[in-house]
Each structure stands twice: as C-alpha cells, then as structure tokens.
C-alpha cells in the first residue's frame, strides 16, 4: 500500500457508453417531463402578463389590468382622487368638514360663489375668522393647492363645486392659471375681508 487513501477502481470507462443509452432513463420520466413542460407553458401564458412590468398577481394580463383602471376623462374622477388624497383629511370625504379642523364645503357660499375668489383660497391659504352658512370659524388653512398643477387644482375645485349636492359652474385650468399668475409673489394667506373684495 503506497497510499493510505483507499485505492479506488478506475471509473468504468465512460467512453464506451454514448448518448444513445439514454434508454436507461425510464420513458415515463420523459413523458412526465413533457406533460409538465406543456402545463408550465400554458400556466405561464395564462398568468404571467408576459413580462410586463405593470402586471402583478392577481392580475394576469395587461388587458385585465387596463379593465380595472378608473374611467378616464369626465374630470371628476381626477378631482375626486385629488380631493380624497389631499383635502379629505380635514374637509372629510363627504365635504362636511370636521369640527375644529375645517368648515364644511357642502352648501358653502365660498365654494358656490365666484370661481376666482374660490381659487385664491387653496393657492394662497386662508387665515382668521370667516363666516360660513351663518357659523363663524376661526382657523388657518395653508396654501394646500399651490403645489398642484393647474389641471389637478381645477379638477378638484370643480369636484367640490359639483359634488354632494353642490351645483355650481366648473372651473377651468385657464382660470386657475390666471389666478396663480395674479398671486405670484404673495406669501401671506388671505383673510375673509380680503376675499370679499374679489369679484
């Protein structure tokens, strides 16, 4: 014994075998492989969304995902989404306001009145006492809408003027743009009296 390592037999020379002896793999294993592969391809086709980056389970295709999207157009969907994301925190989802946080928007003369007057409130903010539907409120609202685009702001203002039973004219992005241009440079919030003077 020249080596403590157990001397192992030389491998049965594999050169003599060739790939043709794949017959040693049971045939049913190949059948299973093909069946599973077929199932796999079908399953992938049905569920994967074909590599689309937007499609997540439980959606199975781009078409299905598209079906569930909120309806485009009609301005109000956009306004509703902005409202619920930003305004509803204080004014509540139903526009009824919250005590000690924000006055109601439903039936409010400030909401239903002049568009240019209403647009000033989110663009510059509002502070100090203000009377709404005969009730006096004394709170401060920051310029919540200043960061919104003209399109988003006009949509949300229109939503407020036309929801929960409110019926007033829509506000266009052009109107918002004009008001925003007038207010450029203003850092102070409006007061009730200042707003009264806006036509």
């Amino acid at each position: 014994m020249s080596n403590p390592i157990r001397s192992k037999a030389a491998p049965t020379s594999p050169q003599q075998e060739d790939l043709a002896s794949l017959a040693h793999v049971p045939i049913w294993l190949f059948v299973l492989l093909f069946l599973l592969t077929f199932w796999g391809m079908y399953y992938f086709d049905q569920n994967s969304g074909w590599f689309n980056v937007q499609v997540y389970t439980p959606y199975r295709s781009v078409a299905e995902l598209k079906l569930y999207q909120p309806p485009a157009g009609g301005g109000n969907e956009r306004g509703k989404a902005v409202y619920e994301n930003i305004c509803a925190l204080c004014h509540n989802v139903d526009g009824m306001g919250k005590p000690n946080q924000a006055p109601p928007l439903v039936g409010s003369e400030w909401v239903l009145g002049s568009p240019t007057r209403m647009a000033r409130i989110p663009l510059a903010g509002l502070a100090g006492p203000i009377t709404i539907k005969g009730v006096e409120w004394n709170l401060a609202m920051p310029a919540m809408g200043a960061a919104l685009s003209d399109d988003d702001l006009s949509a949300v203002l229109t939503y407020m003027r036309q929801s929960w039973g409110n019926k007033a004219s829509a506000i266009t992005p052009e109107q918002v743009k004009a008001v925003r241009a007038e207010l450029s440079g203003r850092s102070q919030p409006f007061t009730s009296d200042q707003l009264q003077q806006i036509p």
């Binding site: 399953y43 994967s48 689309n52 499609v55 997540y56 389970t57 199975r60």
Partner: peptide
Amino acid sequence: PAWMPVLSKV
C-alpha cells in the same frame, strides 16, 4: 411583476 413568481412556480 407577475412573471417572476409565476416562472419560479412553474
């Protein structure tokens, strides 16, 4: 995206 878990499952 769905293709990754689906592929992994297959």
